[in-house]
């Protein structure tokens, strides 16, 4: 290979490495670690069965059936788990891992949810909120649970 060709190729390889490197997972905000019974994930209007290992994205909506439950780990180490007959929306998850700053808004439309908050809530109060149809929970870094009755 000529010196010139090599000179051209290397920046290209570097650029590709960036593309397939960390940025490939930039849209991912968490992962399903536990799924029992009937659980689905709605993304961009399409609903598919939620499986253990599925990567999550902002605006995903997780639903559990009468025998279903789901456990997810978010990028900032928050742990969320929902019991049967639940609808959980991951409305917003902006996380800067270098500063631990960001915003995490989850919404429990119905059902039950247990939460262990993560690195964002630890860094700044008000970084995480959980909404229900009638209330907003501001999280100060804690373990808590919330339920919405029909």
């Amino acid at each position: 290979m000529t010196r010139l060709a090599r000179g051209l190729l290397y920046p290209l390889i570097a650029a590709l490495a960036v593309l397939v490197g960390p940025s490939a997972s930039a849209a991912e905000i968490g992962q399903i670690k536990i799924a029992k019974g009937e659980v689905t994930i709605e993304r961009k209007g399409e609903t598919t069965p939620a499986k253990v290992g599925t990567r999550l994205e902002t605006a995903d909506v997780l639903r559990t059936g009468a025998d279903g439950s789901i456990g997810i780990t978010m990028a900032d180490n928050s742990l969320l788990s929902a019991g049967p007959n639940s609808i959980l929306s991951l409305d917003k998850f902006d996380y800067d891992p270098t500063t631990n700053q960001g915003k995490f808004d989850a919404r429990l439309q119905k059902g039950s949810l247990a939460v262990i908050s993560g690195r964002m809530a630890k860094q700044s109060p008000d970084a995480m909120t959980v909404r229900t149809p009638s209330a907003i929970l501001g999280v100060r870094g804690t373990e808590f649970a919330v339920s919405v009755n029909d």
């Binding site: 439950s69 780990t73 742990l79 788990s81 019991g83 639940s86 059902g111 039950s112 949810l113 262990i116």
Partner: peptide, 14 residues
Amino acid sequence: VLFGAAMAARPERP
């Protein structure tokens, strides 16, 4: 009673 199922589905801590 309220959260048994949700807590049983909690992922293991990092």
